[in-house]
């Protein structure tokens, strides 16, 4: 169990690193396009699409890792006011709702992916890619986040007490 949770943690950290590397790639890719175009060497018309797919990957790969680090912005107005008992009830409701949301995202994400795979739909832009490649990110992300919410619920039962109060998060904007 402990071992499994270590693997899970390591996986999420790896996803975070991948997301960071994708960001670096986006910066370099766009800059390359500007330079190539500006120096009259032509154009990298597929770069826009690659950047778009990278943004998608960053979003879904990073989401479980962000959740693990409690860095998804939340409104803790009520959580701060109520006592420990109220806080436990709120945590139970919030984490159950989160679990349901992620389970639904996982299930319908998986179904969409399978349907797209079966129909073999392609996206014709500058590059031609298979649509299910993109959608496959959704069930993966949904499943990992569902696991995180299950962990939180377990922690809540086991610790019989304080869910650490969420701190205001840097929205960075």
């Amino acid at each position: 169990m402990v071992r499994l949770s270590k693997v899970y943690d390591a996986l999420l950290e790896a996803l975070g690193i991948i997301a960071a590397l994708l960001l670096a790639f986006v910066v370099l890719g766009i800059t390359a396009e500007i330079v190539v175009r500006g120096t009259g060497l032509g154009s990298l018309p597929w770069m826009i699409e690659i950047v778009e797919y990278s943004l998608l990957a960053v979003t879904f790969l990073a989401a479980p890792w962000v959740l693990k680090h409690s860095a998804h912005v939340s409104v803790d107005l009520l959580v701060e006011i109520v006592g420990p008992r109220g806080r436990r009830i709120l945590a139970l409701v919030a984490n159950s709702a989160g679990l349901i949301v992620c389970a639904v995202i996982f299930y319908y994400g998986l179904r969409s992916t399978i349907e797209l795979y079966a129909a073999d739909t392609k996206i014709f832009k500058i590059m031609t890619i298979r649509e299910w490649w993109l959608f496959a990110l959704v069930p993966v992300s949904g499943a990992l986040m569902a696991i995180e919410f299950v962990c939180r619920l377990f922690r809540w039962v086991a610790a019989s007490g304080e869910e650490p109060a969420a701190r205001p998060v840097d929205t960075g904007l």
């Binding site: 154009s43 018309p45 826009i48 500058i126």
Partner: peptide
């Protein structure tokens, strides 16, 4: 068509 005419296409 743009490519067949020797032009470069940019998407925005």
């Amino acid at each position: 068509f743009i490519e067949a005419l020797g032009g470069v296409m940019i998407t925005t």
